[in-house]
């Protein structure tokens, strides 16, 4: 009988010790759960929310931004406009590789300041070659350099988007106006879309973004540039908080050479239609069958 009690007592002690050690090991989680509200946890998918529910969520997000970042912001959820389908074209003959577009993107979309993130990557390419392997995104010298041309790459808003296909929870989808969006409150952070994208268009929030209050762009969209939570994927949305309100993307406005052309593909009189009809246009990695809405062309 002695053996029985001693053994059981030892087991009990072992179990208690184990449980205590486990609680201690998981202690950092208390900080994590502090940031996680029940409303946020139970929030349903974007497409299942009623307009009233969306309003409640938008106000909650604005309050959170105020609390955590110290800035009053307006977060809207602008719907796609009827009869609008966005397209973007870029003139490689005039792009000088100054990366003003990438910088404008960084500010407009409230990117994390430490990582210097941007949805646009500009490759310095060798004249006479479209081989990306001979491109370089880390150049650090005066531009344009002789013998080079520049290839800015951002989300191509593909009509047959591999990233949308692979998402296991439909956290990313194509909107009616052609923009591929992410519901940051639905994404589980598996990064399968990042692996699937052939254009390096997607970014993951490896940390909680840091943006000083005075640098925050207060004009925000639920599906676009609101400050993203840690642990979710994000991407270029053709600045839909601007473009759905009739403005142009930030990268276009920042371009000093006028290399960028943006507009409604369904409007026969739009500049983007003129480019597509009159220039020799191509898309990147056409052979993959992704059907991009982002086009490149040369003038000469």
């Amino acid at each position: 009988m002695n053996d029985f009690t001693r053994r059981t007592a030892l087991k009990g002690a072992g179990a208690t010790l184990g449980a205590a050690a486990f609680a201690h090991a998981m202690a950092p989680l208390t900080e994590w759960t502090k940031d996680l509200s029940l409303d946020e946890f139970l929030q349903r998918h974007y497409k299942e929310l009623t307009p009233e529910e969306m309003q409640v969520i938008l106000r909650r997000l604005e309050e959170e931004t105020k609390r955590e970042y110290g800035r009053d912001v307006t977060i809207q959820d602008l719907p796609p406009q009827e009869g609008v389908s966005f397209g973007y074209a870029l003139n490689l003959s005039v792009c000088i590789g100054c990366r003003k577009c990438a910088e404008a993107c960084h500010q407009e979309n409230n990117h994390d300041r430490r990582s210097g993130n941007s949805y646009i990557r500009v490759l310095e390419m060798e004249q006479g070659s479209l081989d990306l392997e001979r491109g370089n995104a880390d150049y650090d010298h005066a531009v344009p350099a002789p013998g080079k041309y520049y290839l800015p790459v951002q989300c191509h808003q593909c009509d047959n988007a591999p990233c949308v296909k692979v998402c296991p929870v439909q956290a990313t989808w194509k909107e009616q106006d052609g923009v591929v969006v992410v519901d940051y409150n639905w994404c589980i952070g598996c990064r399968y879309c990042e692996a699937a994208c052939p254009y390096h268009a997607r970014r993951f929030n490896w940390t909680k973004p840091e943006v000083p209050a005075e640098e925050i762009n207060p004009d925000q969209g639920y599906l676009s540039n609101r400050i993203r939570p840690q642990g979710v994927v994000e991407k270029c949305t053709f600045c839909l908080h601007r473009t759905r309100a009739g403005r142009l993307p930030a990268c276009l406005e920042a371009c000093p050479t006028g290399a960028r052309v943006f507009g409604n593909l369904l409007d026969p009189k739009s500049p983007i239609r003129w480019v597509l009809e009159n220039k020799r246009v191509f898309v990147l990695k056409e052979e993959l069958g992704t059907r991009p809405r982002f086009f490149y062309f040369f003038d000469k």
Binding site: K165, V166, Q170, A171, I188, C190, R191
Partner: peptide, 25 residues
């Protein structure tokens, strides 16, 4: 590997939005 493991319930068919059969995941 998940950025938001607490959202794993989004994967439950009928409760979340299970992107079957399109997503291999």
């Amino acid at each position: 590997d998940m950025g938001h493991p607490e959202r794993a319930w989004h994967l439950i068919p009928g409760v979340g939005r299970f992107n079957w059969p399109v997503s291999m995941l």
